[in-house]
Nucleic acid binder design. Structure first.
Lengths: 232, 232
DNA sequence: ACAAAAGTGTTAGGCCTACACCCATGA
DNA sequence: TCATGGGTGTAGGCCTAACACTTTTGT
């Protein structure tokens, strides 16, 4: 910003590089995606993923996090890249390749207001028309999410710290778009050993009050060492 | 090349973008990686993956294939990106981010001579010191290969069209760095149903002559539809 | 004749799946 | 009192893992 006329020149053409973020949330029933409404051309007014141009002193992951916070107020989400989109004409302005990331966040972490005036959660079946090739990006993000949740219990990032087994099952069913037998799901999850009772069992009292669990990161780390797999 | 002085200017700094290729091969005993010796600075004389700068009219995958052919003579390898490396100082010349790809090829496909004078296969335990952050790239490529082979029978791209069960087992053992029980491996592979007999069974003749198989892409496509998983 | 390669089958245990009942609460 | 949510256990089938012997060929 010091010099408005400063230009950056290279002997060979360089593409611009951006990082985009597909942010998944879960409201207890269905999976949601965080979109922002574009304020400038191209695609002004259309919905798109938070993201922006890479700076020279940051990695693409850092860029994704920075843009995410600038555009939605979301801090400290742990973003992970999943694919680099490089179709020649994906941006009408100039050649732009984008490194797409995804992250899972608790809905409660997104405060209203902020710069996020234009950020909004959409259920997967209510996604509007998206800018650029973002529909393409979304499809692949969903595919990666489905695969990943079978290997790592990433789903716990989407739930409150303390949750019931039913909530956990709803989450898995929402992501994988299948239904599980409740009893088998209980057994499988408990046998895995990565859940801890969050509260003393409701004893013999109410059989209607669900047990509360929390994710046990220690046990998970042990398991991961030995290599395991969540089968669904 | 028309104008040597032509420069490409942008209002904001742009990184250079490259595509690199980790090429895996299999000699019947161990996994090998194809490296080329750098002819120019930086890292002149050191070994590195084939790769090079993205052109404005190609995707990163196309770039990877083009560079691979230019530098090793390898044609028509099916390359797949697996990660984008963007550490700020990974190239001493300028800011360069690279989209790393991998491919599996039959050793027989690499002809000697060509531009490939400086291309050479290295066993995984004889990898020399690598240029840039290519050791880092290799580690991740190996990890991806291990994961991938459990879901898709990509290993068949590394074997001759017709192969014995023992060769197939050696391949899996080399990639996953484990040992399997021969009988269980036979059963598991045959039950999957993606192998066809390549020759009429050697009848009652020699029990020493191994049966030959070939990969059955049709059956595999069927299986893939339904979603399956190779468990090891 | 001996070592090495290859083909083959059985058994026991664990995991997955399908499925039914009871209790407590709130309407 | 009735519908709903939630907790729990069992039986059968399938898959996995462990395991041994025979034949043949090359040395």
């Amino acid at each position: 910003m010091v010099e408005n006329n400063k230009m950056y020149s290279y002997k060979y053409p360089h593409p611009a590089v951006t990082a985009d973020c597909v942010i998944f949330g879960f409201d207890g029933v269905s999976i949601k995606v965080l979109l922002i409404q574009r304020g400038i051309e191209p695609y002004k007014g259309q919905w798109a993923f938070p993201g922006g141009f890479l700076k020279m002193n940051e990695t693409v992951e850092e860029c994704a996090k920075r843009e995410l916070e600038e555009e939605t107020g979301l801090k400290s989400a742990s973003v992970e890249q999943f694919y680099t989109f490089s179709a020649v004409n994906r941006d009408p302005r100039e050649r732009v390749i984008t490194v797409a990331h995804y992250a899972l966040v608790r809905l409660s972490e997104v405060k209203g207001g902020d710069d996020a005036a234009s950020a909004k959660w959409f259920a997967m079946n209510e996604i509007p028309s998206l800018a650029f090739d973002h529909d393409h990006i979304l499809r692949l993000a969903v595919k990666c999410l489905k695969e990943r949740i079978c290997f790592e219990p990433i789903g716990f990032e989407l739930l409150p710290e303390v949750f019931t087994m039913t909530e956990l099952q709803n989450l898995y069913e929402a992501i994988l778009e299948v239904k599980f037998d409740r009893r088998n799901f209980y057994n499988k999850m408990l046998k895995l050993g990565i859940l801890s009772d969050a509260e003393p069992r409701p004893a013999n009292t109410s059989r209607r009050t669900p047990c509360k669990y929390r994710f046990n990161a220690e046990k998970y780390a042990e398991l991961k060492q030995k290599g395991f797999r969540l089968e669904f």
